[in-house]
Computed example of a mutant assay.
Amino acid sequence: MTHTSTATPAKFPPTIHARWRETAASKGFDILKRIKDRYHLLLRCRICRATHMGKIFVLMNSQPQCPHCIEARWQGDAEAAGLKWAGRDPQNRHYGFYIADCGHRLRRQLELIKRAAAGICDVRCETCHSRKEQEEAAAQGWELISPDPDGDPNYRLYRHLECGREQRVARVNMQTGRFGCGGCGENWPAAPSHLYAMRFKLPNGAQLVKLGFSRNPDSRLRHQLLKHRSVEAQILKTVPMETGQRALQTEKRLHARLKTAFSDSIAPPVLYAGSINVRSEIYFADVTAEIVRMLDEIATDGAA
Score class of each variant (00 low, 15 high):
Ser193Ile: 02
Ala100Thr: 05
Val231Ala: 04
Ala267Thr: 04
Pro64Tyr: 09
Gly54Arg: 04
Ser146Leu: 11
Lys36Arg: 14
Tyr272Glu: 02
Arg293Val: 07
Ala138Arg: 15
Ala81Tyr: 03
Leu43Cys: 11
Asp296Gln: 14
Arg215Gly: 08
Cys121Leu: 01
Thr127Phe: 06
Ala24Tyr: 05
Thr300Tyr: 14
Pro67Cys: 12
His3Ser: 15
Ile282Val: 15
Ala18Gln: 10
Arg279Phe: 12
Ile47His: 10
Gln134His: 11
Leu295Thr: 02
Asn173Phe: 12
Cys163Glu: 14
Cys69Gly: 02
Ile145Arg: 10
Leu226Thr: 11
Ala100Gly: 04
Cys121Pro: 00
Gly76Glu: 07
Ile120Ser: 11
Pro153Ser: 13
Ala118Arg: 14
Trp20Asn: 01
Tyr98Thr: 08
Glu143Cys: 10
Ala267Ile: 03
Thr15Tyr: 08
Leu83Cys: 08
Arg105Leu: 14
Leu295Gly: 00
Glu297Gln: 15
Ala299Ser: 11
Val58Trp: 02
Lys114Phe: 06
Ala190Gly: 12
Asp37Trp: 01
Leu226His: 11
Gln249Asn: 08
His160Ser: 14
Gly82Ala: 11
Thr15Met: 04
Arg279Thr: 13
Ile31Ser: 06
Glu232Pro: 01
Ile298Gly: 04
Gln167Ile: 00
Ser146Asp: 15
Ala233Trp: 02
Ala80Asp: 06
Ala273Gln: 15
Gln91Ser: 13
